[in-house]
């Protein structure tokens, strides 16, 4: 039984003594890159299919239907022997890597993580500015202003003394209030964007947890497909890696929840019930993620009903 092996410049059929037949690739970097890409994706090349009648011995799982899996004798051929200069391979690897980088850049679920983190950044900046303006405005009023947007309006319409220094002070406060206002709208737009993307790529998970938590879970996992492959115990703790490693290393109590703690079903529950609810929510997320990644069916209504029923039971337990 002959062996079959594909190199970067062609497919070879050979036995212990000699090369029986071969299919060389076109001498173009682009054509070579195309074939290397197919191999990487686990596909069978046309050149390889031509040798299917021999039922050759192969050692790659992607070729298992072409022949039979076994130990393949090392093939001692080099591109140069057939007029393929190594610079052709160099060019092909450059083309292929650029293509693969482009594929990653085009992956919306990978970019989602950036938007989620941008949202966190914006929220942090808002809190810093809000604190500062509240303190500053405190000099001009007796009552505390709780709402940020109300504070912005009050500062804009602040009327104080006529001396130059006060005018400048008011102008500076108003400038900061302006920035704060635009940060609020920036936050809203980011939230809309995240929500839109998440509802598109993971409608089931989004329905279970809300779009914000769903986005964080997906970006932590590195995509909805990856999230779908995780066991629910991992999903439960996504975002709690620090606490988890501290537990393994130093024996502190294990964390009960990660990102999903932001859900009010968990953070508003009494402490002794949070673990149970987190576990419940994680199993539903796991099922929802599988539907999003693999079947595309919308099953979140049922999942949510089950989750809420079980949630009430847990809350009623002593």
């Amino acid at each position: 039984m002959p062996y079959l092996k594909t190199t970067w410049f062609g497919t070879f059929l050979y036995d212990d003594e000699k090369i029986i037949d071969k299919r060389l690739f076109p001498k173009e970097a682009e054509k070579i890159a195309e074939r290397l890409h197919k191999i990487q994706k686990g596909e069978v090349l046309e050149e390889e299919k031509e040798f299917a009648d021999y039922r050759p011995v192969v050692d790659e799982t992607r070729l298992k239907n072409l022949g039979r899996m076994g130990i393949v004798k090392k093939l001692e051929v080099k591109g140069e022997d057939y007029g393929y200069d190594v610079s052709l391979l160099h060019e092909a690897t450059l083309l292929l890597s650029r293509k693969k980088i482009g594929e990653q850049q085009a992956d919306r679920s990978k970019r989602l993580g950036e938007a989620v983190e941008a949202l966190d950044d914006v929220i942090k900046i808002i809190n810093i500015l809000l604190e500062r303006l509240r303190g500053w405005y405190g000099y001009f009023s007796f009552g505390e202003v709780e709402d940020g947007k109300e504070l912005i309006e009050k500062i804009k319409h602040l009327r104080i003394g006529t001396e130059r220094v006060d005018e400048m002070e008011q102008e500076n406060m108003a400038n900061m209030a302006e920035i704060l206002a635009s940060l609020y709208s920036c936050r809203e737009k980011l939230e809309d964007y995240v929500e839109e993307v998440v509802k598109k790529i993971a409608p089931n998970v989004a329905a279970i947890t809300g779009p914000n938590i769903a986005a964080r879970l997906i970006s932590h996992a590195g995509g909805i497909e990856k999230l779908a492959m995780y066991p629910s115990g991992t999903i439960q703790l996504l975002g709690a890696e620090k606490a988890l490693f501290r537990h393994i290393k130093e024996g502190t109590p294990p964390p009960k929840h990660g990102v999903i703690f932001q859900h009010e079903m968990i953070n508003k529950a009494p402490r002794n019930k949070r673990g149970k609810i987190a576990r419940l929510m994680a199993t539903k997320i796991s099922t929802a993620a599988k539907a999003d990644a693999f079947t595309g069916n919308f099953i979140a209504d049922d999942l949510k009903r089950e989750m809420e029923k079980r949630y009430r039971e847990i809350m009623e337990e002593g």
Partner: peptide, 18 residues
């Protein structure tokens, strides 16, 4: 020679590594 691949799956880049 750059190869964007998973090192735990040598089958995927076996053809490149002459």
């Amino acid at each position: 020679f750059p190869i964007m691949a998973n090192a735990s799956k040598p089958e995927e880049y076996g053809a490149v590594v002459e």
